[in-house]
Simulated scan of single mutants.
Amino acid sequence: MSPVNSLWFKWKSLRLPWRKSFLVGSDLKGNTYWEFKDALNANRFRRIVKFDPKTHYSDVQVSPQWHQWLRRVRDNAPSIEEQKADIVRQMQMKQLARLADERWASKPSYLDNPKTPKPRTPATGTSDATLSSPQRNEEGIPDASTTTSDQPADNAAPAAKDKDPWATARGGPSENWEPETWAPKPTQR
């Protein structure tokens, strides 16, 4: 702020009895905040903000501290140091939020598909352990020569590929079930 503006602000902030409006303070964006006597009630002061006339209405931003002062939530106007401390607090919150987002993004999501597909359960009646677990040798190490359910065996019978996997699943107790027709009984009076 220039020395001329500083002197003008000090002069306008003096509460002289003949003055109708008093400068209360300014924010870091250059907006000035004023109090003036209400025309209907001389005991009450009204509070307004004046911004640069070159600024468009949608670009005017009032900080939360000044907004509280305008709405009479707080009695005293915020100081420049308090406004600077709030800017530092906002920067720290943005930094902490960024770090929290990075930590959250680094964890695996339960909504994503797993990296390794689960083996399918066979419908032909063979156990899952015989298809998906490899055979182990006497030391307990899996043998690489055995096949799993994902790798078809070379000596598999061609008839097994043509066999219907749902043939054994058909014919259950509810396969041909149909509901009975509803016939209400006469009520007794």
Results as ranks from 00 to 15, higher is better:
T32P: 00
A160P: 01
D154Y: 07
D75T: 15
L70R: 07
T181M: 04
T168Y: 02
G30D: 04
A183K: 10
Q188S: 08
K10T: 13
D164E: 08
Q92K: 13
G125S: 06
K29F: 00
K54H: 04
R170P: 00
L28A: 03
Q135G: 08
R44M: 07
S145I: 04
P78L: 04
P165H: 08
S174H: 11
R189F: 00
R103Q: 06
S145D: 09
D128A: 11
A129T: 14
S63N: 13
P134H: 06
S26G: 12
K161C: 01
S149M: 04
A42P: 13
Q92N: 09
L28N: 04
W182H: 06
E35H: 04
R120I: 10
T187D: 04
T121E: 10
P142W: 03
W182S: 02
A97W: 03
W11M: 14
T148A: 03
T121V: 14
W166H: 10
T147M: 05
G171V: 05
F36M: 09
N43R: 15
N76I: 11
D59E: 14
A160S: 14
W177T: 13
W166Y: 13
A97V: 09
E82Y: 00
K10F: 01
L70H: 01
K94D: 03
R19C: 08
M91S: 09
F9L: 15
W182M: 03
S26M: 14
P142Q: 04
S79A: 10
F22K: 13
P119H: 12
P134K: 14
L111D: 08
D162P: 01
L14C: 13
Q151W: 03
M1F: 01
S132K: 12
H56P: 02
S109A: 07
A160T: 15
L131V: 08
V88Q: 10
E82N: 06
S109V: 07
V49I: 12
N41T: 13
E178L: 09
W182I: 07
K29A: 06
L96R: 15
P114M: 10
K118T: 09
Q95T: 12
I141D: 05
A169H: 12
V60R: 12
T181L: 04
A153Y: 03
Y57V: 12
E138D: 10
D27S: 06
R46Q: 12
E35M: 09
T130E: 11
K163P: 00
P53F: 01
Q90K: 15
P114H: 09
A97Y: 04
W104V: 13
R89E: 02
K20P: 00
V49C: 12
S133L: 13
T168R: 15
A159H: 07
Q92M: 05
L16T: 14
T116P: 01
M91Y: 02
K94W: 00
L40R: 15
E178H: 06
T126E: 11
D75N: 12
V73Q: 11
N137C: 03
A167P: 00
S174F: 06
